[in-house]
Design a protein around this nucleic acid. Sequence first.
DNA 1: GATATTTATAAGTTTCATTTATCATAAATT
DNA 2: AATTTATGATAAATGAAACTTATAAATATC
Lengths: 317, 317
Amino acid sequence: MTITQLYYVLAVAEHQNFTKAAEKCFVTQPTLSMQIQKLEDELEVQIFDRSKKPIELTEVGKKIVNQARNIVNESYRIQDIVDQQKGFIGGEFKLGIIPTIMPTLLPMFLKTFIKRHPKVKLKIEELTTEEIISRIKDGHLDAAIAATPLEDENIKERAIYYEPFVSYIPKNHRLFGKKNIDSSDLEIDDMLLLEDGHCFRDGVINLCKIFKNHIDDKFQLESGSIETLIKLSNEGLGMTLLPYLHTLDIHESEKENLHYFNDPSPAREVSIIYHKSELKMQIIEALQDVIAGIIRGAIAFQDVKIISPLQKNNITV
Amino acid sequence: MTITQLYYVLAVAEHQNFTKAAEKCFVTQPTLSMQIQKLEDELEVQIFDRSKKPIELTEVGKKIVNQARNIVNESYRIQDIVDQQKGFIGGEFKLGIIPTIMPTLLPMFLKTFIKRHPKVKLKIEELTTEEIISRIKDGHLDAAIAATPLEDENIKERAIYYEPFVSYIPKNHRLFGKKNIDSSDLEIDDMLLLEDGHCFRDGVINLCKIFKNHIDDKFQLESGSIETLIKLSNEGLGMTLLPYLHTLDIHESEKENLHYFNDPSPAREVSIIYHKSELKMQIIEALQDVIAGIIRGAIAFQDVKIISPLQKNNITV
DNA sequence: GATATTTATAAGTTTCATTTATCATAAATT
DNA sequence: AATTTATGATAAATGAAACTTATAAATATC
């Protein structure tokens, strides 16, 4: 049994196809066929059921794949140990970012980071929290930036900043006259929300739920981007909530629609999250340093109340 | 990097000598030299400091060895998964047993076990609890039979039986007249004990400590085997405590010296212990079944009070 | 200073992973 | 039903690499 063989098994299990898996491994298809056969011979067990189309894992195969993933990931840690010892910060680093953080945070830190750590090959992907969690677990992401706490025992979190929510209230809205908003003023029914899957949506729902114990499941309108939310709000379709960093590059004419919360302002905790195995920890720490340094100038410390980004049936306040 | 290379690193780290490590791996010494050099080249780091005699690990080397041990052990688990699936019970199985359990328990179950599981190559070693714990952790033992609880988070325990203590009191002793003994009757100062390192010694000390809050550190006599304890006791050097199974094959003439405890009798918990990774779990369960079946006829269930086998400063009763 | 011990190196062999080319089979399309 | 496409297995050839034998170099031991 070799680490390479296990890696091949993982590739085939993932792509459910020898040919595609071979491409991803940069070898030819017969190589995969033969190496996997060899492993199956050695273990005296079938890992794949080749009669099914597309190919499927056998029952033992599933268990073997899980263990193989362990071993392959743990083997990466050896180079990681060496890198850490040498203080080397480099190599490929796959980072996920949730959509509501991506457009504001990425431009702030990207330039600084690649300048300070030129040997790191950053690969950034916009993903929902759900996608991020599963990809961190299966090793397809090295780390991610998301709203926390996630309460997942396989994932560790390091908070990098707390981003207050800001109300965006169009002129025709009942709350427009109020200079400062209180959390209890919020009504889920006249709130514009992001479409399902965005954790920022869930955060806002949780915030409203704290004060009303029920929520109706039919919201007036939903959108995929915060830009659109603002435009819809301008059309008089309701108020909305924006993460603080989004309010920094809003049009001058729209700034009068921003209403800040009274202390403690509801806020989301933004963290860099990563697998508990702490692979590539030096890069994660480097990233944390860069972002924390940049955010320090952008968000003043204030009294905030963290809103959970998770969808929950019961909110404990 | 290959699993084989990591295995070679472990062997050299353990034996601190390429030649001896090579023998253990069933390859020639140049093979080890070259493969380890190759790994060092790939990682671009020295794992061993070859200037020291005997050879030493570098700082990174130590970390790499720890990780390598992980990987090699995890790789064994793949065959283990397959075996488990097939219900196969076989292969080499290294079992440790503490000295005070070995002579009584081993003859009871060995014949039955090898008859029922002929494909298992049992390798049994007599070791102290301390040695057992370190060897289970570094993978040199698959499991062991010892007195528990050990309170070690890396080691799991499965109790197989509870073995009461029996007092062995020679005729000249102040307690000889008492038919049944109470725990509170015990005095550490006239008790014969096993020499340091035996957990049965620590168990007895704990038992005495429960009733007296201090112990003197000069015991009258100490011995390495329970057989010797009985002989010393017959010479009038004091009383002693025996694990119940030892009393079964005591001379007829000495049986009158056995005094049983009133309920709840102090007892030791005897468990099969193994690494939390649960490697070779089928064999462990098979062993547990065999021993439990045999012991069921030998020790009647009774009300017991478990005495910790650990050396402790403070006993909580 | 001679001897023994131990690791590294060199050359040769064998084993094994990989590739190219081809076949077999099943599903999809005509 | 015939043909095409997709996919995995097989065979033969190649090249890499793991391993062995033989030997050198370095270090420790007497």
